[in-house]
């Protein structure tokens, strides 16, 4: 117990890194994922195929393999940067596929009369998608997006294996220094993740309630 209380700052540092990693990758994945979802519903077949190919390939690859490709592969083509940035790239690329699926299901959930109505007032595909369908889709997909982002929060722990000082890596450092308190340190870290996940679920719940349109 003392090992936890004495090293509270190490926990705080670790979870700050975890949260930063989560936020950066979440924003990146939201942008990239929405773009891919738009590609998957657009009229041009090559873009649809490219989007579907991306989603199918990335969703069926373990995140760890994406990490290995980023951390060991990118330096081979002359891209070298910090491990933290590699982790953001890997998490963004991976999570974007799941965001794309969530957004696509949201687009499909918008009543088809909406798209028909916007077409009948002469809107183009881009206008229909960005002005009418996507704004409504995002309201519907808050719950699935919430689970994607909570999964992302948990997935950031994999970065600890690639020299990123997140909560999980700091935990391992603490365990090495205080072997006898290992149960306490592990439990405290797990509870930290649970608290963050519950907090995120709560915030997304608020968001969902404020966005849901009365029908």
């Amino acid at each position: 117990m003392d090992a936890v209380l004495d090293n509270l700052d190490v926990f705080v540092d670790g979870f700050t890194t975890t949260l930063t990693l989560t936020m950066l990758a979440a924003v990146g994945a939201l942008v990239l994922g929405t773009l891919i979802a738009a590609m998957r519903v657009c009229p041009a077949p090559p873009l649809r195929w490219a989007g579907a190919g991306y989603v199918n390939a990335v969703r069926n690859t373990p995140l760890t393999v994406v990490f290995f490709l980023a951390v060991f592969g990118l330096p081979k083509v002359g891209v070298s940067t910090t491990f933290f940035r590699f982790a953001v790239v890997a998490l963004t690329v991976y999570t974007a596929a799941f965001v794309a699926e969530a957004v696509r299901s949201g687009i499909n959930s918008v009543a088809s009369g909406q798209a028909e109505a916007s077409r009948s007032v002469g809107m183009t595909f881009n206008q229909t998608l960005t002005l009418v369908v996507l704004p409504q889709a995002f309201r519907n997909i808050v719950p699935p997006l919430a689970s994607v982002f909570i999964a992302l929060l948990k997935n950031t722990s994999i970065a600890s294996a690639f020299a990123v000082a997140d909560a999980t890596q700091n935990m391992q450092g603490l365990i090495n220094a205080n072997g006898s308190a290992v149960i306490w340190i592990l439990t405290a870290t797990a509870l930290g993740y649970v608290a963050l996940a519950l907090g995120a679920a709560f915030l997304f719940g608020l968001l969902e309630r404020s966005l849901t349109a009365a029908r």
Binding site: I150, K154, N155, T156, S157, I158, S160, A161, T168, M171, Q172, L186, T189, A190, Y193, V194, A197, L198
Partner: peptide, 9 residues
Amino acid sequence: ATPLLLLIL
């Protein structure tokens, strides 16, 4: 809600 890696560790 716990990362799988933590459970394995």
